[in-house]
Design a binder for these strands. Structure first.
Length: 312
DNA sequence: GTAGGGATGGTCT
DNA sequence: GACCATCCCTACA
């Protein structure tokens, strides 16, 4: 299937989506410097609207230097960018996170202030990537925050750019002949997103605020939440993104500085940690089909988890 | 769609 | 040796 055409001007593209560029009265776009300059505008980075000497969309140290719960919520709607070895950029919007608070949090790898070779990154400066192996064969990616040993686990992304590469990367580990993955299944889990964006263990302890291969950006896509980008390389039979198997279209994310409709819930997979397993420290974008596990009860209550007390 | 079970090997005690 | 912030597949409603 071919990429669906949109009524947007295709000169400047963000995250693989065309962005709506205000047109002049004569309905033409006037790139700064005239028509010749249009040809040298980079599809993403050098948009005339997001000119990026040094990429001014990139989130820096200041962003990461905030308390863990605050960072976990702030990450929702931001875009994780990964530059592959072949130069291709993969992009996914963060739609689900979990906060691990450090010493007091018994479910955290850094519980009790315990510092090991593995979790060293959790104690490094905010914005440090913590990648660890789990169940022998998978990886999970965290971002350290303010607070000793505190970090935010990235649990799910909404694929924005590089769908074909993500399908390849995810498919490489699946059984031959198994059913094709839907777009919403590419990154709907902490290890799945590491596979889809080719996040290696070697990224552990690297600085997300200053790394040429992986970083976070503000989301400039005012159309976030609409139908995901289609990738012409993909299997034409993959029709998943047609409303994500009946899911309602996710609510619009308001890019930078805007509000995201956040659902707060209990964290996943830590049942053995007693009361800490029930703390409302998981956050996700309401209605987004790429979330790994939806908490319908929390959603029915208006986005709040059962347990009222939030530890920050 | 949901639930259950098997696979898997690094990390920690 | 036990645990594990997971994933995939199959069966069933």
């Amino acid at each position: 299937m071919q990429a669906r055409k949109r009524k947007t001007f295709p000169v400047s593209v963000t995250h693989g989506h065309e962005i709506d560029i205000p047109k002049r009265a004569n309905n033409t776009v006037q790139p700064k410097g005239g028509a010749n300059e249009q040809s040298i505008i980079h599809p993403y980075c050098q948009s005339q609207y997001f000119s990026c000497k040094g990429n001014n969309l990139k989130l820096g140290q200041d962003f990461f230097n905030q308390p863990c719960v605050s960072l976990a919520k702030a990450l929702l709607g931001k875009v994780l960018v990964r530059v592959c070895s072949d130069g291709q950029e993969l992009r996914g919007r963060v739609v689900e996170t979990e906060a691990y608070l450090g010493g007091e949090d018994k479910a955290s790898h850094s519980a009790g202030g315990k510092r090991t070779q593995r979790n060293t990154a959790m104690f490094m400066k905010p914005g440090t990537i913590y990648v660890y192996p789990i169940y022998g064969i998978y990886l999970c990616m965290n971002i350290s925050s303010q607070g000793e040993g505190a970090a935010v686990l990235l649990r799910a992304l909404e694929p924005l750019e590089g769908h074909a590469a993500m399908h390849r990367l995810r498919g490489a580990r699946r059984r031959e002949g198994s059913r094709p993955l839907k777009d919403k299944e590419l990154c709907n889990g902490p290890s799945k997103l590491c596979q889809a964006l080719d996040i290696p263990r070697a990224f552990d302890r690297r600085d997300l605020a200053d790394d040429p291969e992986v970083w976070l950006e503000r989301d400039t896509d005012r159309g976030a939440g609409r139908e995901p980008e289609r990738d012409p390389e993909r299997d034409p039979e993959d029709r998943d993104s047609e409303g994500a198997a009946g899911d309602k279209a996710p609510p619009p994310l308001q890019g930078d500085g805007g509000e995201v409709d956040v659902v707060t819930s209990m964290r996943i997979g830590i049942e053995s940690h007693g009361e800490w397993a029930t703390k409302p420290l998981r956050f996700y974008v309401r209605g987004n089909p790429c979330v790994s596990v939806r908490d319908k009860r929390a959603e029915a209550r208006g986005g709040q988890a059962d347990v009222p007390k939030v530890v920050t």
